[in-house]
């Protein structure tokens, strides 16, 4: 149990997938202009990452059993794309209001490297099934934390309005993300992911 909590906290803070590995940067930069869109995107990310890790783990075991690990990358990608499609269809049919608020972000996630990275880390670190789920969920929550912090700072900055013209938009977001990443370095050594 303690092991799982360690993984969870490490995935959020010390090994934050956005701020220490710099993964998932395209939606991170483009959707962190308002807290509301960042929130919708984060929910979609949490959902998809946990779901795909849960499906990819048994499939990876199957590949190992048949000695076909060579195709694991491509299988992961296919599984991610297909499950996002499926989730979108189910959501559109049964939860239209949910679809309206964060469903439109789902297609964006199909090509998000965070999702693939989590599946690859779970293989690399030889997690058990439960540990994989906790790690996947934790990583996604960490990504949410990072994008929400940056979006909130960005919104506040817009109110003050003294960002130099050339830095507005992507430029200032990169700087904010860099400073926050430095701040996250302070968590280093608190917990380890292994």
């Amino acid at each position: 149990m303690a092991h799982l909590i360690t993984i969870f906290i490490a995935a959020i803070l010390t090994h934050n997938i956005a701020l220490t590995y710099l993964l998932g940067m395209c939606p991170f930069v483009s959707l962190s202009r308002s807290v509301k869109t960042a929130f919708g995107m984060s929910f979609a990310v949490i959902f998809v990452i946990t779901l795909t890790a849960a499906i990819n783990w048994p499939i990876h075991r199957l590949l190992v059993y048949y000695n076909s690990e060579i195709i694991s990358y491509i299988v992961f990608i296919i599984i991610i794309a297909a499950s996002v499609q499926l989730v979108e269809m189910i959501m559109e049919r049964f939860f239209p209001s949910l679809q309206a608020s964060f469903g439109i972000f789902l297609p964006l996630i199909t090509v998000n490297c965070t999702v693939l990275a989590v599946s690859l880390f779970m293989v690399l670190r030889e997690y058990s099934y439960i540990a994989t789920l906790v790690f996947a969920f934790g990583s996604a929550v960490g990504w949410m934390l990072a994008i929400m912090i940056v979006a909130a700072i960005n919104e506040k900055l817009k109110l003050i309005g003294d960002v130099p013209k050339g830095l507005r938009g992507t430029g200032i977001i990169m700087i904010i993300a860099g400073i926050i990443a430095l701040a996250f370095l302070g968590f280093g050594g608190m917990v380890d992911i292994k």
């Binding site: 048949y66 076909s68 599984i79």
Partner: peptide
């Protein structure tokens, strides 16, 4: 074996998506 597995996975996914498309 990897070739067969990947084809099998693709087949299963295609069938699943086709069923979902029809019913959903």
């Amino acid at each position: 074996v990897p070739v067969i597995i990947i084809n099998l996975i693709l087949l299963i996914i295609t069938i699943l998506l086709a069923i979902a498309d029809h019913f959903l």
